[in-house]
Amino acid sequence: MSLLGRFPALAGVDLDVAAGEVVLVQGSNGAGKTTLLRACAGLAAFGSGEAEVLGHDLRKDRRAVRRCIGLLGHATFLYDDLTVADNLTFAARSAGVDRSAAAEAMARLGLDGRLRDVPAGKLSAGQRRRVALAAVVSRRPDLWLLDEPHAGLDAAGRNVLDEIVLDAARAGATVLLASHELDRAAALATRTVTMAGGQVTGGLLVPREPIHVA
C-alpha cells in the first residue's frame, strides 16, 4: 500500500509499505499515529494527494479497501446486546468471509468457552479488548491496522496477539502497528517509522527483511 497526501491532522505523509511488512508507527501522544491508521482505512478527511491500499484507490473505492482491512482502534465497535459469537459472526460476514472464521478466532483467543454466549455488554474492559481483537481476526484482513493493540490485554492475550501479528505477516498480510510498548512492538516489526507533528519524520530504525513466504 502507499499513502501520499494531506489530511487535516496530518501535515503530509509519504509512506510505502509492502506486503508481509510489519511497520511500527511510533511517536509521542498527538503525533498523528491514530490519524495515520484511520487515514489508511479511509476514515480521515482527505485533503489532497493519493492513496492506494491493497491495489484499490482509497479515494474512489473505499468500500473495496474496507472489506479487506481490520482496524483495532480505541473504540471496540461491539454490539453490547449481541453475544460474543454473534458479534464475531457479524464481523466475519460483513467482510464477506465465511462464518467459520469467527469460530477460529474464538478458539484462538480463548473465547470459545463460557464467554461465547455472553452478551458483549456484560464483559469486562479487558475481555472486550480481546473480543475486539477477535473481531478483527474474524475478518481475515489483508491489511491490519492495530492502534495500541497491547493496551488492556493480559500477559496471555499479549502473547497471542504477537503470534497473530507474526502469522498474518507470514501469510502475506501487511500490518501497521501504533504502539507505546516499543520493546514488545519492535520485536515484531520489520520497520519502524517515527511520527511527530503529523508527519513521518524518520523511518527504517529497525532494518530487517520483510517476513515473506511465497
Binding site: L43, R63, I69, G73, F77, Y79, S94
Partner: peptide
C-alpha cells in the same frame, strides 16, 4: 446500537454496501 457515537465509523469499517 451502532456503538453510540462511533456509529458512522462502525458502519463504514464494516465494509458493507451503503
Amino acid at each position: 446500537i451502532e456503538s453510540d457515537d462511533d456509529a458512522r465509523d462502525a458502519l463504514r469499517l464494516s465494509g458493507l454496501d451503503g
